[in-house]
């Protein structure tokens, strides 16, 4: 569905992504694991169309990649950015309606509003509250719900567990699986490697801008290198 081959992304002279390739199949949850500064967010921004790759090829549904962020959004590639970026001075419902900005089918929007309220019942209670007054977890739910309101084909989630309590984190991951079960492809960038790998169909490990490992979520979970670097498991050296 989304194919990226050997892209290179730069910030000025800094080489942030090096010859990176990923392949995302329709209907799957794909996880990118990596430490701080590995390039997870850079990859997300690139896929959302905000950053541009200097070289390499990117295709979406077999067609050339939309060149700009707003065009990517219109094609169904929707990023839920790191740290949520809600409109603090708008209510929860207004934030959600911003997600449906490009849509004109009022019936469909209404239906999707019910759908996201059923996914996140707490948002229904908070519907007229200003987004800036929500707790971190509620804000993250609003951000994901806003992403869903545009009926994305692929949802890019950048660090959805950032700053959340373990309870909220578990809830967010459960919802991600539910969203995926409804047919939305998901690309998940996470530092919480264990949880993210557990729900992933396939996964990649990113290190200083390079893809160093890939496989199914299970394979990576049992890979000693991943366990040592990201899961806190110590392997005895012989």
């Amino acid at each position: 569905m989304l194919k990226v081959q050997n892209i290179n992304v730069y910030y000025g002279r800094i080489h942030a992504l090096k010859d990176l390739s990923i392949d995302i199949d329709q209907g799957k949850i794909v996880t990118i694991v990596g430490a701080n500064g590995a390039g997870k967010s850079t990859l997300m921004w690139t896929l959302a169309g905000v950053l541009k790759a200097k070289s390499g090829t990117m295709t979406f549904m077999g067609k050339p990649y939309p060149p700009n962020a707003h065009e990517a959004a219109a094609k169904g590639i929707v990023l839920v950015p790191e740290r949520r970026r809600l409109y603090a001075n708008l209510t929860v419902k207004e934030n959600l309606m911003m997600g449906a900005f490009l849509r004109k089918d009022h019936e469909g929007i209404k239906k999707d509003l019910y759908y996201v309220y059923s996914l996140f019942p707490i948002l229904k209670e908070r519907t007229n509250q200003y987004a800036g007054t929500l707790s971190g977890g509620e804000q993250q739910m609003t951000a994901i719900a806003r992403g869903l309101m545009s009926r994305p084909k692929i949802l890019l989630l950048d660090e959805p567990s950032l700053g959340l309590s373990p309870i909220y984190t578990a809830e967010v991951f459960k919802t991600i699986q539910e969203i995926n079960a409804q047919g939305t492809t998901i690309l998940l960038a996470e530092q919480n490697a264990k949880k993210a790998l557990e729900i992933a169909h396939s996964a990649y490990v990113l290190e200083t801008g390079r893809m160093v490992l890939s496989g199914t979520g299970k394979e990576l979970l049992s890979d000693p290198r991943v366990q040592e670097a990201y899961l806190g498991v110590r392997h005895k050296t012989i």
Binding site: A69, H70, A73, V78, L86, N89, F101, L102, S150
Partner: peptide, 17 residues
């Protein structure tokens, strides 16, 4: 207004900055 409040979020919603 959406652009002023948060340019990135506006772009993600499909607004041409």
């Amino acid at each position: 207004i959406a652009v002023r409040e948060d340019a990135v979020a506006a772009e993600m919603a499909g607004i041409d900055l």
